[in-house]
Nucleic acid binder design. Structure first.
Lengths: 329, 329
DNA sequence: CTGTTAGCGCATTCAA
DNA sequence: TTGAATGCGCTAACAG
């Protein structure tokens, strides 16, 4: 059913149908009514693709995520779809499974006007990314990493990490272990580590090598890194940079016969949904991933529709969730 | 950069450029080379929207999910995006937040050729849904519910539930509580309950009213329903129809001073990622949500590209994960 | 106020 | 083997 058919049925021209559908231009009341009736009767739905070709806008945005099945990513996407809906946009998901080539491929592919804007949830942003991003003609916002020159939504990783470390110190801990990730992920790998190190140093504490272990993002890494730390040192608390890592660490501890938090305390960052249902309930920093997604979406729409200033850096808040995985010494 | 520009740069006609891009028709080798060089040089990306308008195919599929931030949904979407990628399709996400009107709206909206096929992750499939689905001209596959006449990917909820109940009975349990959900969700609300009831009956056991509680899908419901059951009866085991419900139940039990599984055993269905890291590690039925998503995607593509027979019912497997939340009596 | 025309970028006739 | 012309469905410009 095309606009032409509706026009014929209503006894008007296609242009008139278009005018009533889009509520612009003058249309006499009786014709408008006639058109509306036909539209109603046949449940006419305009062809969005044709509209896109004409208007050079697709009313779609692309979201590039490293791994959709992750709680973080799905919360972000929930936030994005939420504001996209009220703005009348559709969202296209590109799941890259952390493959940089895939990310770049999608960056290019999505750009040929097949979407009006892009939100990229970044882990690592390389020069290759930048090169492609610089050629993009559509707005892009980066979520999770700070990229100068591009609008970014970032989590306050440094402060969150610093404050978490400080919290542990305030609870009387001095030997604080650290489980981190590779520095290729600047936000998580570098910033969270720096927050920890700086805080330690500010309190004249020592982050010796034996207390620090670096690995991947998964629970199993948390498990292994915890054992590695235990082999070299005797922390009273361990700060894992993600909740999953913390869960792995707790299990390693339990496995070695330690009690948490009685013998060793453990904290994470992120506040996954189940954090409070863990045993012990995990003390962690609550991150507002859904809100980040919303902010990112609002930022792209602002860029798309209002030609907003590109390059703004928005920072989301975090909040300490004190639960029961830390012992006050 | 349009096809016309490339043509000009390469000194050929747009038609020739189109021929080399799509590898069809005859093109003399030197011209082909010239075109390829220009394409390479300017990194030409064809306009997908124009292609779609021309071909009447968008190479996109829509996925309607009740709530993307849910582990189940995000695993399904991971499966869908995975096979979509290899098939060269993009996926459009429509997040309905369990709003039936939204589902219907998207069913209509996505259909106007803006996608080539739809995967709907269903909770409740009403007559209104059916009415709209019947008018659809593009293929649709339902995931999670059985809808006759439509290709559906279903989980074997009845058998999973029956076997879980039987497992509990084999462990010596006779008073088995049940935490379920509303029957509007046929698969989870009706089938899983029926599996439980039928099994009980086959073993001449009694699913008295005091042992059964029905509520929503969230953890808190599990908590409340568990307390409700405890107020009326004294089960030795409780079967919750989802892992989240089971987690809530465990917490209610702990809260009342019971030990799990020493005093009361608890099982769930789904096998969320953290199930094995819970305390106690949760015995549950492993469901293959990512595989379901893959199957659904394969099914739509089959419908789209090979005009496959519509109405097939595919059932996914499940597997008991015996962990430590059940005591052998 | 309304209809006719043209063109968005592409692939596909049809001629040459 | 190639190019010119056409049309996918829509909306904007222009004419009336």
């Amino acid at each position: 059913m095309r606009i032409k058919d509706i026009a014929k049925l209503a006894g008007v021209s296609p242009a008139t149908v278009s005018r009533v559908m889009n509520n612009n231009g003058y249309v006499k009341e009786d014709k408008r009514k006639a058109v509306l009736e036909v539209i109603e009767a046949v449940d006419y739905q305009p062809n969005e693709i044709a509209k896109s070709l004409k208007s050079q806008k697709s009313r779609m945005i692309g979201v590039i995520v490293p791994k959709i099945s992750t709680e973080t990513a799905s919360r972000v996407v929930a936030g994005v779809t939420h504001v996209a809906k009220t703005a009348g946009y559709q969202v296209l998901i590109a799941n890259t499974n952390l493959d940089i080539e895939e990310e770049i491929k999608y960056l290019k592919f999505l750009s040929n006007k097949s979407v009006d804007g892009i939100i990229m949830m970044g882990t690592e942003v390389t020069d290759r990314h930048l090169e492609v991003m610089n050629k993009l003609t559509i707005p892009i916002v980066i979520l999770g990493q700070k990229v100068s020159g591009y609008t970014s939504i970032i989590h306050n990783d440094y402060d969150a990490s610093y404050q978490m470390t400080e919290y542990l110190i305030n609870q009387g801990h001095k030997a604080i272990g650290f489980i981190g990730v590779d520095e290729k992920d600047y936000a998580v790998g570098v910033l969270r580590k720096k927050g920890y190190l700086d805080c330690l140093s500010d309190y004249n504490l020592n982050g010796s090598d034996g207390l620090i272990a670096i690995g991947d993002f998964d629970i199993d890494t948390g498990f292994k890194m915890m054992k590695k730390i235990l082999a070299k040192s005797q922390p009273t608390a361990v700060f894992a940079v993600t909740d999953h890592l913390a869960i792995g660490a707790i299990h390693a501890l339990l496995d070695q016969g330690y009690r948490v938090p009685e013998d060793i305390s453990v904290v994470g960052i992120g506040d996954i949904k189940l954090a409070e249902y863990l045993n012990p309930p995990l003390t962690t920093m609550h991150y507002t991933f859904k809100t980040s997604g919303q902010m990112a979406a609002e930022a792209v729409f602002d860029l798309i529709e209002n030609n907003a200033h590109k390059g703004e850096q928005l920072m989301t808040s975090f909040q300490l969730k004190e639960r029961r995985s830390v012992k006050h010494l």
